[in-house]
């Protein structure tokens, strides 16, 4: 691993489903500790790119690298072990586990104590479990969830469930966090909180974040760099200011005549 290598690099990544090319020739990089947004209109291929990075799909062509190491052919759990964690668009917590256990289970990936050690229950196992408990509680209290440790995860309010899902992803000690439409289904107040939360995570944990998002306001508000997709192709990449004024992006989102609407939307951001 070389420190000059980017955290994540996609090189002319394409995927075809039968005759349909869903994503073609996507090229972008995320530097370590960079916060990048991936946007595009409906059906642009955002989720497909997300699924390519997380190992759910394998690209037909091209290369995906994490610190210059190829990710092609790796299963999602292997990616998590390398240091890539994700959340889901429709929250997927473990419903029969408590808040505490939802986070605890994600710690397993960095926990050296396996099956035999759990059976033997020796000193090092007990010490290990204590360490896990302590780090789970630390994480929970950073995100103000410590009071709910024994509650069933799915009994939490919506905003707290989103937070818990992010906590669970952070418990795997990632270097790159992938957020799949975290603002989906949130009201404006919750979106404000979410923006704060994402900025906070970025500063506190010093990790790279890739935010796949529909909501212009959230993306413009938190990302340092934005990549825009349309019809499976990259049409623009740059700072929020550059994207805001980018002709191709405006046309992709609004067609080519209603620039006023666009200006209104980005003015909110």
């Amino acid at each position: 691993m070389n420190s000059s290598d980017p955290l994540l690099r996609l090189r002319s990544v394409s995927i075809r489903f039968g005759g349909l090319t869903a994503v073609s020739g996507v090229d972008f990089e995320i530097a370590s500790r960079e916060m990048v947004g991936l946007i595009g209109p409906n059906g642009a291929g955002k989720t497909t790119v997300f699924n390519l990075i997380t190992g759910v799909y394998q690209p037909t062509e091209g290369e995906i690298e994490f610190y210059a190491q190829s990710l092609i052919g790796l299963k999602p759990n292997a990616l998590t072990r390398l240091g890539i964690a994700r959340t889901f668009q429709n929250i997927r917590l473990f419903p029969s586990l408590s808040v505490f256990d939802n986070v605890r289970v994600a710690m397993q990936v960095r926990n050296p104590h396996g099956m035999l050690s759990a059976l033997w229950r020796g000193k090092s196992f007990c010490a290990g479990e204590k360490v896990v408990e302590k780090s789970v509680m630390e994480l929970l209290s950073i995100f103000h969830l410590e009071g709910m440790r024994s509650d069933a995860a799915t009994s939490l309010p919506y905003g707290a469930q989103r937070r818990l899902e992010i906590v669970r992803a952070l418990a795997t000690a990632p270097r790159l966090l992938l957020l799949d439409e975290p603002a989906a289904g949130m009201n404006p107040a919750e979106k404000e909180e979410l923006k704060e939360l994402i900025r906070f995570i970025h500063e506190k944990f010093e990790i790279g974040i890739l935010l796949v998002e529909h909501d212009m306001d959230v993306v413009m508000g938190v990302c340092e760099r934005i990549v825009v997709l349309e019809y499976g192709k990259m049409i623009a990449a740059g700072s929020p200011e550059e994207i805001r004024d980018h002709r191709a992006v405006i046309e992709a989102y609004l067609g080519n005549k209603v620039e006023d609407d666009w200006n209104e939307e980005v003015a909110d951001a």
Partner: peptide
Amino acid sequence: VVLCLVNSTYGRGFIAVADDELAADAMGIN
């Protein structure tokens, strides 16, 4: 054996797999 396996950080993975295999996979559980 069954209780020791399940009542550990390692063993919570069994329940996670039962609850949601896709999410468990994404959390580094094979």
